[in-house]
Design a protein around this nucleic acid. Structure first.
Lengths: 339, 339
DNA sequence: CCGGCTCACGCAACCGATTGCGCAATGTCT
DNA sequence: AGACATTGCGCAATCGGTTGCGTGAGCCGG
């Protein structure tokens, strides 16, 4: 691998001059610059990231933390969408992204923070379920530029999908269709779940609708088994709901299957809705009604905010950015059957 | 950030000794080792990746190339699954993965190879549609350890989902159900498509079934619009097929919708099948029959092969590893209606 | 008491690039 | 022609860590 030294030898100038020439410093004549450039091409020169990073203390690297215990962030449609958009945006600006190693199986594993310091990432984006993990806290409390997605830490930039408004809108929609007996199978406790629950009750309260406690139950995200079970329970209640909302589109499938197995039709007998806006689920019959989360925008805003925080920390506003979702009317919510 | 120098000062030993102590070299006494370790912890020492990489010429970094023009690798269930498994496996062995910057929008973008050399990745994994791109070729022809997924280059390790056998099996299955008029809407030209076409014709030839040319048409992967249109065309043929195979599970949705819009039932009137094994599509009605590709295995094998190639280049066999898929019987293929 | 051995540690070069400062060689102005 | 400004380049330190080789101290046996 050719280095600056090789070029300097070839051109008969110093290493310093070569460096400056290639980096377009102004104190190098056009002529030498050309000579240097040609030699660089000739020798197949490739700059050395590590050397540069060592000297400049900048890596143009961004660490991505997607904790994945059971269900990985990568195979999770929502996160994959966010990450994809994030990646595109930062890459346009010359940053590279590296996953922060989450594997617990390593012999001498580092904590997240150690890993970030080791690599010298310029910034970090965090999107995971388990924001309460001590390691995550350690990372967040450091002085490293951080943006979180769907969770708010003190004094950190957060990009939040507007789960409150989204859920309110979805619930309002159900109510507007005439539903009063609305059940909500929510996800495991998290910032997101809390927000959605708030949105849910905000809508029902506003309309003066009282939701019995047994209508609101929790299960895991993206777990069709869980929603299957809970749905069966709900359907067996003496006062059965007319509409069931699910933690996410995927887990709604478990519910839909349960409903159909009970010989009930969607939406004639039971209305259902998901949350996320996963294409497959909204495309196929019965075309799930859902809130589409703007993964593109979320990823892009997260990227831009983070880069801004890295490059101009003084003028970057530490704020919570809320990205609205949008109701997508499918065909799974209809007026409840009159009795 | 504390460095070796800080520790050496604190302990009254040389930098070299500190380095050796922390790296468990044998020529350091237990006692100094302990002192050094304690001081390291006390000072919050963090090793410096760049300095180490610079000196050792090893990064323990792996570059991931997922070309994403239209449809990104990340939001593609199959690739996301492979990548996720790949990531888990390499992380266990202490490697980190970084995406090779694909953005064409950068001012002074590097080619893939330049980017890899710049970062000094120990190895690269390639999984993309466009294996023919000149930049990809440049990368592949280099001396960098490379593993490709679903494409075979000369003298390179390739992990291949067994598309030939998979498609043969799927087609055999259709035939075994009594179908003779089987249409195949395949994906755009690629290694994968070629393999599946081979498998398709292998099965029909074996059974002495002749497939009219107009039954075999192409469209893009994961494009429900395309399959929707092509399906309508197929259904309007005077001699309509009784079974339609699709490029992938997702695009099958477009076909399913077209079929239903024509007032036909699945599988009573028309049988359909996809390819991939995407959970949502095989979970929800009508529970698509498909070939499940073993993304876990593919990612894991790719990771292990690549690491082996990096760490013991002499003894690593350059080979094509074929990973079988598995037929998953859903409810979209039935015996054709007798007429 | 001495030669030789082991143990524990330091020396110093090196990886490749960056950058503030100094300096010589021109050019410019009066 | 002399004072001064400008231009173009090199010097040398520095980032943090690694490692082969050398060496001094202490111990052994003879």
């Amino acid at each position: 691998m050719a280095s600056l030294k090789d070029i300097s030898r070839q051109c008969g100038v110093s290493v310093a001059t070569v460096s400056k020439a290639l980096n377009n410093h102004t104190d190098i004549s056009e002529e030498t610059r050309d000579r240097v450039r040609r030699a660089a091409k000739e020798l197949g020169y490739s700059p050395n990231f590590s050397a540069r990073a060592l000297k400049t203390n900048r890596t143009h690297g961004i660490g991505v933390l997607f904790v994945d215990e059971a269900n990985s962030g990568l195979t999770h449609d929502y996160f994959a969408g966010v990450l994809d958009s994030f990646k595109k945006t930062v890459e346009e600006k010359g940053y590279d992204i590296t996953f922060i190693n989450c594997s617990k199986k390593q012999p001498n594993r580092m904590t997240f923070l150690e890993h970030v310091r080791y690599h010298g990432f310029d910034g970090v984006v965090i999107a995971c379920i388990d924001f309460d993990a001590p390691e995550v806290a350690e990372l967040v409390q450091s002085d490293i530029p951080i943006v979180t997605i769907d969770h708010l830490f003190n004094n950190k930039i957060a990009i939040m999908s507007d789960n409150i408004t989204g859920m309110t809108e979805l619930t309002d929609y159900c109510i507007s269709k005439g539903h009063k007996k609305i059940a909500y199978i929510h996800g495991e406790p998290s910032t997101v779940t809390t927000a959605r629950l708030t949105g849910f009750y905000r809508a029902t309260d506003k309309q003066g609708i009282t939701i019995p406690d047994e209508y609101v139950v929790g299960t895991a995200y993206r777990d069709t088994q869980g929603t299957y079970r809970e749905t069966l329970k709900l359907l067996k209640l003496k006062d059965r709901p007319t509409c069931i909302l699910y933690p996410d589109d995927f887990s709604a499938l478990g519910g839909i299957n349960a409903i159909r197995e009970m010989g009930l039709r969607i939406p004639e007998d039971i209305s259902v809705a998901g949350y996320d806006g996963i294409k497959a689920v909204t495309t196929l019959e019965p075309q799930l009604t859902t809130i589409v989360q703007a993964t593109d925008l979320i990823g892009e805003r997260a990227a831009k905010k983070l880069i801004s925080l890295i490059e101009k920390p003084r003028t970057t506003i530490i704020e919570q950015v809320v990205i609205p979702g949008a109701l997508q009317e499918g065909k799974t919510i209809a007026e409840p059957a009159k009795k």
